[in-house]
């Protein structure tokens, strides 16, 4: 394998950028998942240990982080469905660009449903 490929396969536009975003959000979600399983595992240590760590998720800064995490998951989920349609639906490749805009539309609607509720919980103090 050449170490410096001649030319590039990157073509830009909807196809490439959705692929880039899918990778970036996937890696983000994966690293959160590793941490999230380990913090949840603290329920096995003691109620105090779990509550101490989970309370760090309930600060305002982490609340914004959770909004970002949910945004990454929602995009990855909807774009994943688009990838499946590109692979298995006969007209998928023809409509892949349109489908990215549908993904972005569904993303906006989902986040509009989630963000106000979550941010209210985060910034109104909850308890």
């Amino acid at each position: 394998m050449p170490s410096a490929p001649a030319g590039t396969l990157y073509r830009g536009r909807e196809g490439m950028w959705s692929w880039v975003a899918h990778r970036v959000t996937g890696v983000l979600i994966f690293f959160f998942l590793l941490v999230h399983v380990l913090d949840t595992a603290l329920v096995r240590v003691s109620p105090e240990a779990y509550n101490a760590v989970i309370s760090t998720y309930q600060t305002e800064i982490m609340g914004l982080g959770e909004a970002g995490l949910v945004a990454a998951i929602v995009f990855h989920a909807f774009n994943g469905i688009r990838i499946i349609l590109v692979d298995f639906w006969a007209k998928g490749p023809k409509y892949q660009r349109v489908m990215l805009w549908v993904v972005i539309g569904l993303f906006a609607v989902t986040m509009a449903g989630f963000l106000p509720r979550h941010l209210m919980n985060v910034f109104s103090g909850g308890h």
Partner: peptide, 17 residues
Amino acid sequence: NLMVGDGVHAIDFAFVG
């Protein structure tokens, strides 16, 4: 875990348990 009730603020040992 995030939308129902108090959302993230409701999560503690008793919630998971």
